[in-house]
Amino acid sequence: MVEDLGGETWLRFRFIAPQIAKGPGAIAYDRAAPDMEHLCAVVALPYMTEHALAGQVIVVSLADRPVEFGAADPEATQYFEAFRAQDGTCIWEGL
């Protein structure tokens, strides 16, 4: 998904990760964060190149189930991370 927010182009890459669901054995944010950086590097950056997309912010999100964009789902577990593309790598934004 491509959005124009405050004069910047944001590219959103959304993934389903059932393993982050609440409960025993759930993968916590600290363990999932490196996966989001990896998805930025191996999925988002090549996709941007392939489709000639430019954006200032790349947002990678993980959800334990499909959630409509912008909709609230208090039962869903969702993790979000923002990056900037620089020199072919994903730089964490820490938003």
Rank of each mutant, 00 (worst) to 15 (best):
Ile91Ser: 10
Pro74Leu: 10
Gly6Asn: 15
Leu5Gly: 06
Pro74Ile: 05
Pro74Thr: 10
Trp92Ile: 04
Ala21Asp: 13
Ala72Glu: 15
Glu93Lys: 11
Asp30Val: 02
Leu39Asp: 00
Tyr29Met: 05
Gly88Asp: 14
Arg65Lys: 14
Pro18Val: 02
Ala52Lys: 14
Gly88Trp: 08
Gln78Asn: 12
Asp4Gly: 11
Phe80His: 13
Thr49Glu: 15
Val59Ile: 00
Tyr79Leu: 00
Leu5Met: 11
Glu75Thr: 14
Glu75Ser: 15
Met1Asn: 15
Val43Tyr: 11
Leu11Ile: 07
Val57Asp: 07
Glu81Thr: 04
Met36Tyr: 07
Phe69Gly: 00
Leu62Gln: 02
Val60Glu: 03
Gly6Val: 00
Asp87Arg: 09
Gln56Asn: 12
Ala76Tyr: 11
Glu75Arg: 13
Gly25Trp: 15
Asp35Thr: 07
Thr77Pro: 07
Val42Ser: 08
Ala41Leu: 04
Leu11Glu: 07
Asp4Ile: 14
Thr9Gln: 09
Leu62Asn: 03
Gly55Ser: 08
Ala41Arg: 06
Arg84Trp: 11
Pro74Cys: 11
Glu81Ala: 12
Gln19Trp: 07
Leu5Lys: 14
Val42His: 10
Ala52Arg: 13
Ala71Tyr: 13
Gly88Ile: 03
Val60Ser: 05
Val67Leu: 03
Thr9Ser: 10
His38Gly: 01
Met1Lys: 15
Thr89Tyr: 13
Ala26Ser: 12
Glu37Asn: 06
Arg12Glu: 08
Arg31Cys: 01
Glu68Lys: 01
Trp10Leu: 10
Met36Ala: 03
Gly7Lys: 12
Gln78Leu: 09
Ala17Pro: 03
Asp64Ser: 09
Leu11Gln: 05
Ala41Pro: 04
Leu39Ser: 04
Pro74Ser: 13
Ala82Ser: 15
Asp35His: 10
Gly6Phe: 10
Val42Lys: 01
Ile16Arg: 12
Gly23Trp: 14
Asp87Ile: 00
Val57Trp: 14
Ile58Asp: 06
Ala54Asp: 04
Ala21Pro: 06
